[in-house]
Amino acid sequence: MRIAARVNGLAWSGEVEPRLLLSDFLRSEVGLTGTHVGCEHGVCGACTVQLDGEPVRACLMFAVQVDGREVTTVEGLAEAQPGEAITVEDLHPVQRALHEAHGLQCGFCTPGILMTAEAFLRDNPTPSREEIREAVSGHLCRCTGYHNIVEGVARAAELLAADGPAAHDDDDR
């Protein structure tokens, strides 16, 4: 089946088999391997991407379902072109905050958490720790014990607030 979608702002079109999971489509067809696959039954959250700005499990959707829609993956957060070197300064505030708070260890679950956190902070720019815990409770992380993920998201809220509303609007796409 032929589909045309936008992924991280770039147009993609081509043929896909109906059963191709969105997660596999992003990784193998679009070549964006930052979206990780941990369980393929919608529990671990590693494959979370944004569909028209809302976080969804990429393992529970088919590529054919994003025809005409906009998908954002972890590669779309920092403002760098593919292949271009990225430094800490280039990171999106949510990424930078997780870095500062040591909110990642092996980093495998991290892309999904970033996609959830970015959307969550758009809806709720000044969350409590408890709200943050609830917001990321759909993600399994076996390394961090979540402590520093929660601190990282809280830090991200501060960074986004400091960047001002204009910068935040940019991130809304």
Binding site: S28, G34, H36, E75, V88, L91, Q95, E100, G107, L114
Partner: peptide, 21 residues
């Protein structure tokens, strides 16, 4: 010291075995 490996991991660029094709 903040971690050297983080930028690669946070941007989805770190290579895991699954990413090798």
């Amino acid at each position: 010291v903040p971690r050297n490996e983080d930028v690669r991991l946070l941007t989805g660029r770190a290579q895991f075995v699954e990413d090798v094709e």
